[in-house]
Structure formats: C-alpha cells, structure tokens
C-alpha cells in the first residue's frame, strides 16, 4: 500500500513538470517580445531591459527554465503588473470566497448526483431513468452563466428569496454566508451534478451486469443492499475518477460564476487579470489551479486503494 502511494506521488511529478514547461514555453514561444508582454503597453525601454534581466531572457532557454522553476519552488511567482503586489499575496486575499464556493458546490453535487445516478441505473429503461438523464443532459448543456442568470431572475429578482450578488464570510454568521453562496453554488453545481450523475449511472449499469451482482441476488439479499453495498462500492472508482477530472470543469465554472455573482474570489482575479493583460497573475493562476488539479487527482488515486482491495495488495 505504501509502495502504491509512493508510486502515485512520484508519477505526479512529471505531470507538474510538463505543466510548468507548458506555461514557460507559452510566454517564450509566442511571437513578440516576452518582456513587452510582461511589462504591459506602457513600459519604458529601461523597464523592458530590467524585465529582460530579471527573466534572464538573454540566457539559453534551458537556463531560463531552471532559474524560473527555482523561483517558483522558492515561492516567488512574481508581482502583478497593475498593483505591483506579489501574486501570492493577491491569491491569498482572494482564496476564501472561492474555497467556500467550491466546498458548498461539492456538497450539493455529491448529495444530489450520486442518488440520481444510482436510481437511474436501477430503474434503467424506465421513465424515471429517462427523466433523470434528461435533467442531466440539460444541466450539461446550459452554459454556467445562463443558469446563473436564470436563477438570479427567478430567486433574486422575481421571488426575492436570496440577494442578487455578493459574498459574506462564514465567520460573519451562517445565514448571511449561506443566502449569498446558495445560488452561485447551485449554478456551479449543475454541470457537475449532470456529469457525475451520468457517470454514476454508467458505472452502476456496468457493475449491475457483473456476475457477483447475480450472486448477491441469488443469496436473497434486498435490492437496497445489492445496490449500495455490492454495486455502488464497485462503481466508486470510475465515479471518483470523474470527480477528479471534472475538477478542471469546475475551475472554468468558478471563473464564470464568480463574475456573474460578483464574488471577490480567484475567478474574479482571473477575469481582472485578463482584462488588464496582467500576465504574471494569469501565469500564477494557471500553475496554482493545475497544481490543485494534480493534487486532487493524486488524492483520488490514493483513495482507490481504500476502495478496492485489489489495488491495495
């Protein structure tokens, strides 16, 4: 088991190196002067030269990459062009809303999507199945911002149940926090629910065709036990895999949701950075989110070992 975990951790290192390489090359291989891109449109020639020095743009690419990676590892992600604050400080300031949104979204998703998928698979071919799948396709197809505006229109403008926009920290009390986070989280959760419900259904259908499910039924076990103890546990690995890979989907969702609902999180930071062409910030955000993606998928890989004894031994 320990060997498995170590193997997984080692396997994720090259992925991070590849990510770093992509981000590095993106700036260097783009037509035009990287220093000019970094400095923005208003830079003076002296500033450009200063940036060239800092980035080591006159060095060979390999040297540049090693220096740059070294800076990243020591926690130096550069400074924002606009506010001149270190990028990490900016990110730190914006972390809480995004983290809150992600966690509440995840809760909504798991509470809804897995039962939906299980029931659809169990009732395969019936109206219930079709209805759940229709909802899922719908959730999968309607863009996040459209869902967002529809929810705002219904719950905030017409019914006035929730505020239209904004964010309050959970430390200011649960209800102020919850009434503002519920619509964004629902918005963001739709795609995720759709995705995981689909996968749960597909994985359950696969498992329900297995011989050991027939054995379980031949033992006279109740359908509830057959479904949850025997089928869902075996379907867990593919479902978890999608939870992990779907995280990439969630990132793009976060960016949009935060700008629709005006949440001061990392998504807004991203949008502001795009509009200002603040490349160091964009670069750091890519590295950060990719890093989180890799870590989440690593944790999921490790959790397989707890789900499936065949991996454990």
């Amino acid at each position: 088991m320990l060997a498995y975990i170590i193997r997984r951790i080692l396997a994720s290192i090259p992925v991070m190196i590849v990510v770093a390489l992509f981000v590095f090359l993106l700036l260097r291989l783009t037509p035009g002067d990287p220093a000019a891109i970094i400095a923005g449109d208003m830079a003076t020639p002296a500033q450009l030269e200063q940036i060239r020095q800092n980035l080591g743009l006159n060095e060979p690419l390999v040297t540049q990459f090693i220096t740059w990676s070294g800076q990243l590892l020591s926690g130096d992600f550069g400074r924002s062009l606009i506010s001149k604050t270190p990028v990490l400080t900016l990110i730190h300031q914006r972390l809480e809303p995004t983290l809150s949104l992600a966690i509440v979204t995840m809760l909504f998703t798991l509470l809804l999507s897995i039962p939906m998928g299980v029931v659809a698979a169990w009732r395969h071919g019936t109206l219930t199945d079709s209805a759940i799948m229709a909802i899922s396709v719908l959730g999968f197809s309607i863009p996040v911002f459209v869902t967002g505006y529809i929810l705002i229109q219904i719950f905030a403008i017409d019914m006035r149940v929730f505020p239209i926009q904004g964010f309050r920290s959970i430390f200011d009390g649960f209800w102020p926090f919850f009434e503002r986070i519920v619509l964004p989280a629902l918005t963001l959760a739709t795609i995720y629910i759709a995705l995981i419900a689909r996968m749960t259904r597909a994985a359950m259908l696969d498992v329900l065709g297995e011989d050991y499910i027939r054995t379980a039924r031949a033992k006279g076990l109740s359908e509830r036990i057959v479904l949850f103890r025997h089928a869902l546990r075996n379907a867990a690995v593919p479902i978890l895999t999608v939870v992990g890979t779907g995280f990439a989907l969630m990132i793009s969702g976060v960016v949009v949701t935060e700008s629709v609902f005006n949440l001061p999180g990392l998504g807004r930071l991203t949008v502001d950075a795009i509009l200002a062409r603040d490349y160091p910030v964009i670069q750091a955000l890519i590295l950060l989110t990719s890093g989180i993606y890799v870590v989440i998928n690593l944790l999921i890989d490790i959790s397989y070992a707890f789900m499936d004894p065949r991996i454990r031994y």
Binding site: E210, D211, Y212, R214, T215, A216, R229, H230, R233, N234, M307, D308, P309, R310
Partner: peptide, 8 residues
Amino acid sequence: MTALNPVL
C-alpha cells in the same frame, strides 16, 4: 473468478 464481489 467473477461470481464473488471483489471489494468485500
């Protein structure tokens, strides 16, 4: 080989 549940 397949008649027993692999995770129990």
